[in-house]
């Protein structure tokens, strides 16, 4: 099985690396990161902290763009270009093609996270050397935050893959994933609002609908370690373990659904 998967993974990864649109997005991201030391000086009292905020935000935006562009142009485009017709003539199940696609996407996102993370380390060091802060740079928390961001966008990528297996055009996976990104980022906040005093004024039906959506949608707040990375706050190990478990289970479920959907898709 692995003997079949490996060439598929490498082939897909090479294809992604050749994508000029992604080159442009990555180059823009690196360009933004280079501006971080000078932009951090806008802060009156926390240049180092602002450099970390800006770096993590830049990484997040670039990974979001990569996820949306890559994920939303994957399966349906392969079908449209009849690439699947030739690949699926090989002696392997359809699911293998999709798993190869997903793994190459994960690999590329990890590659982007690594490159951007390394660049962030350099710019944070430069910014914190300009105006040393009262406390040292929490490198461990920053590393965890970058890893969590990468996992978050892999999870979002699983959604784009699922939507891509259903779609015949760019629009559903792109805008669907974008909507899920915003909904997943806000779901925890909304849940907390309705669980508090705001919920007293809402009908039980509305509350239950919102709670249902909260449990159904991906919870991207679980992957948000920005405050801890910027201010060096303590991170509980149990939360990290839960995040890892949540990521594996949720992305596994989405991949399963994507395989189920793709297996039933009528190919031209």
């Amino acid at each position: 099985m692995l003997a079949l998967l490996y060439p598929l993974l490498i082939q897909n990864f090479r294809g992604i690396l050749r994508d000029r649109m992604l080159h442009a997005v990555l180059a823009s991201g690196l360009g933004i990161l280079l501006l971080v030391p000078s932009m951090s000086t806008f802060s009156m009292r926390q240049v180092q902290e602002l450099s970390i905020t800006l770096s993590l935000s830049a990484i997040s935006i670039v990974l979001l763009l990569v996820t949306l562009l890559l994920g939303s142009s994957s399966v349906w485009r392969d079908i449209e270009k009849r690439y699947t017709n030739s690949v699926l003539t090989l002696p392997m199940p359809r699911s293998m093609y999709l798993v190869g696609k997903f793994l190459s996407f994960c690999l590329f996102l990890c590659f982007c996270g690594l490159i951007l993370g390394l660049c962030a380390v350099v710019v944070i060091m430069a910014a914190s050397a300009q105006y040393p802060s009262g406390h040292s740079v929490p490198w461990g928390n920053i590393l965890l935050s970058v890893v969590a961001l990468t996992l978050k966008y892999i999870l979002l990528g699983s959604f784009t893959l699922l939507l891509s297996t259903l779609s015949t055009s760019f629009f559903l996976p792109f805008f669907g994933a974008l909507a899920i990104y915003f909904a997943g980022s806000a779901s925890q906040e909304v849940y907390e609002y309705i669980s508090g005093s705001l919920g007293e004024n809402l009908s039980p039906t509305v509350i239950n609908t919102i709670k249902g959506a909260y449990y159904l949608l991906p919870n991207f707040s679980a992957f948000d370690y920005q405050v801890q990375a910027v201010y060096g706050l303590t991170i509980s190990m149990s939360r990290v373990v839960l995040m890892g478990g949540y990521f594996l289970i949720y992305s596994g479920l989405l991949l399963g659904l994507a395989i189920w959907s793709f297996n039933r898709r009528q190919l031209p």
Binding site: T53, S57, S60, I61, L149, K152, Y181, F182, S185, A186, E189, V190, F220, D224, Q226, V227, V230
Partner: peptide, 8 residues
């Protein structure tokens, strides 16, 4: 809600 993971 609108600023997603860019609150800071």
């Amino acid at each position: 809600l609108a600023s997603a993971d860019h609150k800071l």
